[in-house]
Design a protein around this nucleic acid. Structure first.
Lengths: 337, 337
DNA sequence: CTGTTAGCGCTTTCAT
DNA sequence: ATGAAAGCGCTAACAG
């Protein structure tokens, strides 16, 4: 790699003059600036990242820790993070916790050696379940800011970007009620995550508030470790006159469509189904699943802006929680009311 | 952050003694080593990454440039990369080219300032189409090694990890022929990628070699920018007595299943279908799609091992191309022969 | 307008 | 067994 020293030597001037010339310092004559910049371009000079980091105690990189890259929600969020960070002149170091507390902790500690200026984290399921917070607090004590997105822990004092899961489920359930559905099942999963709890609460609230709806709420917990289709089949058999399904993710949504067809329901005449869009399953379903859309990339972009504001001390002292609204996209598995 | 200086001052000894003590140097007395390491642990000392990089001209990080994070093949490869790199003590900086040449070039150049010790790259579609190579060669000239995976360019002299796409398509087509299929269509896509070409060639070779098979090969290019289902429907209408489909990706595989059912084919009695497993579509199809499996994570792991061998100069001077074998997983859309 | 110098945190050679 | 000093590449305060 070509250095300031090389350029200085070649031009017979001092290193600091070269440095200032490259930074267009007012102290340097235009003539010198020109010849220095010309040579620098010629040699394709780039300031050494490590030297810059060392000097300025700033790395211009963000540590991103996500639980699972194969989950489309996180992949899309990561995409948003990468795009926005790159736009704002930051790099990202990506670590994957695989939903494990130890792995998350190890990754966070590994980066706390001046590798990053701050973190964007979506908390591992295990960490959330065990309610481990010490590794986050330790980092915060070292003055490294954290932004949590989607999966967060209430009592860690940092900026947060969350999805309005409660409101989304509430709205989606209301859509089903508005269509006159009388027996609505929530297909949930048993993962001990906030997300699931909030969506369940949103569903319950909508059901309870509705005066017309007579049935009790029906929450079915699907075990994701075993055969999904069989479990969904069982739901159809158990609740004969079922006419609405809110599926907590899109996989369950598509399976619900297929099972509804299998049990000779007409969609959306006999039954309405709404899913959550963690990824694009539209090519695989017929009719097309109506979904709650999460705007995953926007979530990532917001997280980046918040962490950079914090790193560059442009944010207020107070911690901010930004709620990203979801939207419902009605397609063919709901009546378009 | 706590530094050597802090520890030295606290213990009333010199910085260099502390440094040596932490590295268990034989020059230092056991007593000193003990008290230094004890205090370092107490203060949770971590050597500053930037200083280390600067001193050693080694960053212990790898730049990873992939075309598309939402594509499951790349997401899984990235997962393999991250896992293996982390195991071997390296970090990764991830950049996404979005299949664009300019973005790829920009990202590569951005990291060529001492940010990384080497690159793992899967070439953007546009770059491959335009056959741009200068940005790769420029990096190579700066002594930064590159490993390309999956999407590579023949005449860039670097290590490569590729999938046996030709062999995979050849084997899959032979499976269909072995089942006695007489009219086999290849559903391909028009993306100008090597991958597509190789799979097509594998299909063609198998067809041509077979003495029993009388039909001409049928390669249908699907335009991924417009409605996929309609195009697949058209194939079924155009080739009435079609009894085998090799789909170049799993999305097309599932769509083919659905269309086959729609046109009243019994699977696998009337028709066999094989897809390529870029991601897990099994929950969405019934019967379950037989697939060619790509072992994406293994590809990523191999790429990491190769780049580290290169970085640490453990590899032979000669460039290596490693071919990762695929396997066929027969499920319910093929006769189990 | 240009140059000298110190220092970011660390390793390593060379004295002591 | 310990320490002083140089140097990795850069910036910036200060001197001239």
């Amino acid at each position: 790699m070509i250095t300031l020293k090389d350029i200085a030597k070649e031009l017979g001037i001092s290193i600091s003059t070269v440095s200032k010339a490259l930074n267009n310092s007012y102290e340097i004559s235009q003539a010198t600036i020109n010849k220095v910049q010309k040579l620098a371009k010629e040699y394709n000079y780039k300031p050494n990242k490590a030297a810059l980091s060392l000097k300025k105690s700033k790395t211009k990189t963000i540590g991103v820790i996500i639980p699972d890259i194969l989950n489309h929600f996180f992949a899309k969020s990561l995409h948003g993070i990468e795009k926005e960070a790159s736009k704002l002149g930051y790099s990202i170091i990506t670590c994957i916790s695989n939903e494990l507390y130890q792995s998350e902790k190890k990754n966070i500690e590994l980066l706390a050696n001046g590798s990053v200026d701050g973190y964007i984290i979506s908390v591992a399921a295990e960490t959330q379940k065990k309610h481990e917070v010490e590794h986050f607090k330790s980092v915060l004590r070292q003055q490294l800011p954290i932004v949590m997105f989607d999966r967060m822990i209430e009592d860690v004092s940092c900026d947060k970007v969350i999805i309005d899961d409660f409101g989304a489920a509430y709205k989606a359930t209301n859509q089903l009620l508005k269509e006159g559905r009388k027996k609505i099942v929530l297909l949930s999963t048993l993962k001990g995550l906030n997300v699931g709890k909030l969506r369940t609460e949103g569903y319950l609230k909508a059901i309870e508030e509705n005066k017309v709806y007579k049935e009790n709420p029906i929450v079915v917990n699907i075990n994701t470790a075993i055969d999904l289709e069989e479990q969904v089949s069982k739901v159809f058999k158990e609740y004969k006159d079922l006419d609405g399904i809110l599926a907590i993710d899109n996989t369950l949504g598509v399976i619900a469509i297929n099972k509804a067809k299998h049990f000779d329901y007409k969609l959306p005449k006999d039954i309405s189904i709404i899913g959550f869009s963690d990824y694009n399953v539209l090519p695989f379903c017929n009719p097309k699943l109506s979904t709650v859309t999460q705007h995953s990339e926007e979530i990532g972009e917001n997280a980046v802006r918040m962490i950079i504001d914090r790193i560059e001390k442009k944010a207020s002292v107070q911690k901010i929680t930004k709620v990203i609204k979801t939207s419902i996209e009605l397609r063919e598995t709901t009546k378009n009311i």
